[in-house]
């Protein structure tokens, strides 16, 4: 019976990739009529290839997610994944994901930042963000290496009406001319214009040091 028909009720739905900083996780949900002992097997392939490859570690599983980061790690390729649900004594029910490109689909996590308070300034040091993507020489690509036009946007909220803004592609910034012993709220985001990507903000609440002079 064709998948999703009366003889083969929908055991599976919403097969999709969830990708964040190039960590690519395939997720799915059980169907409205799938019994708890339904098991799932995952396969994947490159778009344009005919052979499906079984993902070791995600065969006959009961959980509803599978990490395909390494299998979908080529940034220039496009991929598909297929989940096949099986209930005891029943027909297998396969469902294929949408075409997946990690460059297009990955979301960007907030940056890792160290906020350093001084007497009349606050320094913000943004640390590079490693990804699971391996370069030819074995090192892990950072987001900055993958996205040439990646830049940072920093904001320091001084009070309800006044904010200071800095931004650029370098990693160290300093907000100057601040009042000693005062609390400020800093937010730092990553933006990638070409792919219309914007991270959630990293937020740091910092108090400038007292002025003992």
């Amino acid at each position: 019976a064709a998948p999703g028909t009366e003889d083969s009720p929908a055991l599976l739905q919403y097969v999709k990739f969830q990708s964040s900083n190039f960590e690519n996780i395939l997720t799915w949900e059980s169907g409205p009529e799938s019994p708890p002992d339904t098991t799932y097997s995952v396969e994947y392939k490159t778009y344009g290839e005919s052979v499906w490859l079984a993902k070791k570690g995600c065969q006959g599983i009961t959980r509803k997610s599978c990490n395909l980061t390494m299998e979908t790690g080529n940034l220039t390729e496009l991929y598909y994944a297929k989940v096949t649900a099986v209930r005891p004594g029943g027909q297998p029910f396969p469902k294929i994901s949408e075409r997946f490109s990690s460059l297009q689909h990955t979301t960007i996590k907030p940056p890792d930042v160290t906020c350093v308070p001084k007497v009349r300034s606050i320094q913000m040091i943004i640390h590079p963000t490693p990804t699971p993507i391996l370069a030819g020489d074995g090192h892990r690509f950072t987001l900055e290496e993958i996205f040439q036009d990646l830049f940072y946007r920093l904001e320091l909220r001084v009070n309800h009406t006044y904010q200071m803004h800095l931004g650029g592609q370098q990693r160290e910034y300093e907000f100057l001319g601040l009042t000693p012993e005062t609390e400020f709220l800093g937010t730092i985001m990553i933006l990638v214009p070409t792919w219309s990507k914007e991270s959630a903000p990293y937020v740091c609440r910092v108090k400038t040091l007292p002025d003992w002079t």
Binding site: K45, Y47, G48, E49, S50, Y80, I96, E98, R99, Q104, T194, W195, S196
Partner: peptide, 19 residues
Amino acid sequence: QHGFSEIRDSVQAKDDNIN
């Protein structure tokens, strides 16, 4: 790219021959 991204998923979903 932005313009295409708005129709990409619906167009790709019609492509049945992913081989």
